[in-house]
């Protein structure tokens, strides 16, 4: 699979959907193609994150720790990105991600991603727009939830 295929896959990620092909190509070129064996851990909850993984083929399990051991929260397959929050801010990983099948990924490092944003304002604007949309969605969901709670007389 060459870089062009990777670009196609990157395009399907909402965060990158509006970005130029040549920019995505650069993102792919500066990223690392990494394979994981079944059961290998991509990152652990609480680790300091420095990269996101675009899953090209295979499936990962996302789990969070609880007093009763790790609890599987979700399984995510190809064309999804995990750990993307760490591209934008330094927060500890919120979950552990494990390869559930032999995995082929594109590892996007924060430093490289920032390097792109610093010098390509157009790309930064696209990312901001995407984040604003997400925030808007979250706000809307939050107020809907508030409304539900109020209706149920719980607040």
């Amino acid at each position: 699979m060459s870089i062009l295929t990777e670009v196609e896959l990157l395009r399907r990620i909402p965060l990158f959907s509006n970005i130029d092909t040549s920019r995505l190509k650069l993102l792919a070129f500066t990223s690392e193609r990494l394979t994981f064996e079944n059961g290998a851990i991509l990152f652990r909850e609480g680790d300091r994150g420095d990269s996101a993984y675009l899953i090209l083929t295979g499936k990962v399990d996302i789990s969070v720790g609880s007093p009763n051991g790790d609890v599987l929260v979700a399984s995510v397959g190809a064309n999804n990105i995990v750990g993307e929050m760490s591209l934008l801010c330094e927060i500890p990983r919120s979950a552990t991600v494990t390869a559930a099948e032999p995995l082929d990924t594109l590892r996007i490092k924060k430093d490289q991603f920032f390097g792109l944003l610093r010098d390509l304002p157009q790309m930064t604007l696209e990312i901001m727009r995407e984040l604003a949309l997400r925030l808007n969605n979250v706000n809307r969901e939050l107020s809907a939830a508030h409304a539900k709670l109020r209706a149920a007389g719980l607040e």
């Binding site: 040549s22 190509k25 650069l26 070129f29 500066t30 490289q112 390097g115 010098d119 390509l120």
Partner: peptide, 19 residues
């Protein structure tokens, strides 16, 4: 590819050395 990828970067950008 290089011209396409790197044409917009300032000459001292670390990407040049690295990639």
């Amino acid at each position: 590819t290089m011209l396409e990828l790197f044409r917009d970067f300032p000459p001292d950008h670390p990407f040049f050395d690295e990639f």
